[in-house]
Design a protein around this nucleic acid. Structure first.
Lengths: 146, 146
DNA sequence: GATAATTCAATTGTGCGCAATTGGATTTTG
DNA sequence: CAAAATCCAATTGCGCACAATTGAATTATC
């Protein structure tokens, strides 16, 4: 039998760029879990709140574009956040197809309790500032190129 | 009301390192889908096969360590790959707790059909070789630091 | 060598993530 | 303006991903 290590080197796990992306993404989300647990948010719910803390009100479609999520994922997440009282959902008057998502008072309050999360996470990561910036730049370049 | 853009700049989506990681990971997996669909593999199943093409036989635990996956995820994936005839599952004689996963003939055959996948994917990505290498290095450094 | 602690895969339950479809609203076209 | 095409959220179905638990096998401790 041919040496399995060498017949298709491009198929070695260590030669994939996708795998460390996938693994890093999962591991970083795992690190968020304890901090987000205190806020009773999942990671996806946290991403939605990040957008709402910034924009206050926007359509479901815009939210999906910002987060790379489709309605199949967003619809149940938004319903759950509405049940928690963190946002409201209503149809647009201009165009009944559009769902307008707006942050609530309780949602705004939560922002203060979430303010420490990014710093808490940063302390888990052992990249210096230059490397973090370069990683950030390359990830966005990569994302833009896809 | 305070300017929502400025009261907690660390909570801006664009200031998160986690988000482009999460988005890149999902987008790259999306790009794999059509190619893996031809092989009737999901992305997770593909990762398992990458390891088996390299190692031929290893325990479920070792597989989980290589891919950062636990038994709750791996057990059903391995059963499905066994149903497809791509691998076999048996208990270790040494230690009945361990499940030994071994690639089958059909699994080895599939490797030839998968050989073009990495190149097909690379052509979707508009990073030059130096940048891809640097991204790879930073991701593994990041992963190691977590 | 009995018992306690540990190590496994498997199971259960929850929450995405997404392709595909549905059905209502709106826009485009003839 | 009526029919067709498009656009939207919602739904459905499937496959992870993972925390927590279970139960069997093994190892460590007394």
């Amino acid at each position: 039998m041919a040496n399995a290590k060498n017949d298709y080197p491009e198929l070695l796990l260590e030669n994939q760029l996708c795998f460390p992306l996938y693994a890093c993404s999962k591991e970083i989300i795992r690190r968020y879990r304890p901090f987000l647990g205190e806020l009773e948010l999942t990671y996806t719910q946290y991403l939605v709140m990040l957008v709402l803390w910034e924009r206050q009100s926007l359509s479901s479609k815009e939210l999906g574009q910002a987060l790379y999520l489709d309605s199949g994922t967003l619809t149940p997440v938004l319903k759950k956040l509405e049940e928690k009282g963190l946002l409201s959902r209503r149809r647009s008057g201009d165009d009944e197809r559009n769902l307008i998502v707006s942050i609530s008072e309780a949602g705004e309050e939560l922002k203060h309790r979430a303010a420490h999360v990014p710093q808490s996470l940063a302390s888990c990561v052992k990249l210096d500032a230059d490397e973090a910036r370069e990683l950030y730049r390359l990830l966005y370049k990569f994302l833009g190129s896809l």
